[in-house]
Computed example of a mutant assay.
Amino acid sequence: MTARGDRRGVRCRCTCPGATVWVTGGPVADRLAAAYALAERLLGEGRRVEVLDRFDALCTDAHRVGIVAEVLARNGVVAVVPCAPRAMAAVRARHRARDTRYLEVRVNGHLGPEESVLAVHRQLTGRP
């Protein structure tokens, strides 16, 4: 048993690292398109992925969605969250405190869904 707050003794049994990818900016359709395009790409590589788009009318409770995403990521799943940036500071802090990978991508006019997906994919996998 590890001491409270000491997570070094806890090991994930999965084979690939998880992460939370928070997709913001742009209209809801663009965020969803980017989230699902990223999920398809990662699934094609054999990664475990979950798109969290069914919470509270697209994430009105970002703190709760952030907790779910962090738990999934800590257990080897790439949790993709296409939500508006409410409570993101708390979500970032939770991930940092638990040493869980966290990425943010903003979809906007000049960086559409596909370009956003490619940028995040490079960050997650280290390859183009």
Results as ranks from 00 to 15, higher is better:
residue 2 T to F: 04
residue 2 T to P: 11
residue 4 R to P: 12
residue 5 G to P: 11
residue 5 G to I: 13
residue 6 D to E: 13
residue 7 R to N: 11
residue 7 R to E: 12
residue 7 R to C: 06
residue 8 R to N: 13
residue 8 R to A: 14
residue 8 R to M: 12
residue 9 G to N: 12
residue 10 V to Y: 14
residue 10 V to L: 15
residue 11 R to A: 13
residue 12 C to K: 06
residue 12 C to G: 08
residue 12 C to N: 12
residue 12 C to W: 09
residue 12 C to M: 08
residue 13 R to F: 14
residue 14 C to W: 12
residue 14 C to R: 15
residue 14 C to Q: 15
residue 15 T to F: 13
residue 16 C to R: 12
residue 18 G to C: 04
residue 20 T to P: 00
residue 20 T to N: 02
residue 20 T to L: 02
residue 21 V to N: 00
residue 21 V to E: 00
residue 22 W to V: 00
residue 23 V to F: 10
residue 25 G to Q: 05
residue 26 G to P: 04
residue 26 G to I: 07
residue 27 P to I: 03
residue 30 D to S: 14
residue 31 R to F: 00
residue 31 R to T: 00
residue 32 L to D: 00
residue 32 L to H: 03
residue 32 L to S: 00
residue 33 A to D: 11
residue 34 A to D: 00
residue 34 A to R: 00
residue 34 A to Q: 00
residue 35 A to I: 02
residue 36 Y to I: 01
residue 36 Y to W: 15
residue 37 A to V: 10
residue 43 L to F: 06
residue 44 G to V: 05
residue 44 G to P: 06
residue 45 E to W: 09
residue 45 E to A: 15
residue 45 E to V: 07
residue 46 G to A: 11
residue 46 G to Q: 09
residue 47 R to T: 01
residue 47 R to H: 04
residue 48 R to H: 12
residue 49 V to S: 07
residue 49 V to K: 07
residue 51 V to I: 07
residue 52 L to E: 01
residue 52 L to Q: 02
residue 52 L to R: 02
residue 53 D to G: 15
residue 53 D to T: 08
residue 56 D to P: 01
residue 57 A to N: 11
residue 57 A to K: 06
residue 59 C to H: 09
residue 59 C to S: 10
residue 59 C to Y: 02
residue 59 C to F: 06
residue 59 C to V: 04
residue 60 T to A: 14
residue 61 D to I: 06
residue 66 G to W: 00
residue 69 A to R: 02
residue 69 A to C: 10
residue 70 E to F: 01
residue 73 A to W: 09
residue 73 A to V: 12
residue 74 R to S: 12
residue 74 R to G: 13
residue 75 N to A: 10
residue 76 G to M: 08
residue 79 A to T: 05
residue 80 V to I: 14
residue 80 V to R: 03
residue 82 P to C: 12
residue 82 P to V: 05
residue 85 P to F: 00
residue 85 P to S: 09
residue 86 R to C: 01
residue 88 M to H: 05
residue 88 M to C: 09
residue 89 A to S: 10
residue 91 V to L: 06
residue 91 V to W: 04
residue 92 R to T: 05
residue 92 R to C: 11
residue 92 R to A: 13
residue 92 R to Q: 12
residue 94 R to D: 04
residue 94 R to K: 06
residue 95 H to W: 01
residue 96 R to D: 13
residue 97 A to P: 02
residue 97 A to M: 05
residue 98 R to L: 09
residue 99 D to V: 07
residue 100 T to R: 01
residue 101 R to G: 02
residue 102 Y to W: 11
residue 102 Y to Q: 00
residue 103 L to R: 01
residue 104 E to A: 10
residue 104 E to P: 04
residue 105 V to N: 06
residue 105 V to Q: 09
residue 106 R to M: 05
residue 106 R to N: 05
residue 107 V to T: 10
residue 107 V to D: 08
residue 107 V to M: 14
residue 107 V to S: 13
residue 107 V to W: 08
residue 108 N to T: 04
residue 109 G to F: 05
residue 110 H to D: 10
residue 111 L to C: 12
residue 111 L to S: 08
residue 111 L to Q: 13
residue 112 G to E: 07
residue 112 G to Y: 03
residue 112 G to I: 01
residue 115 E to A: 14
residue 115 E to T: 07
residue 116 S to I: 02
residue 116 S to R: 02
residue 116 S to C: 15
residue 117 V to H: 08
residue 118 L to W: 05
residue 118 L to H: 03
residue 119 A to M: 08
residue 119 A to R: 10
residue 119 A to N: 03
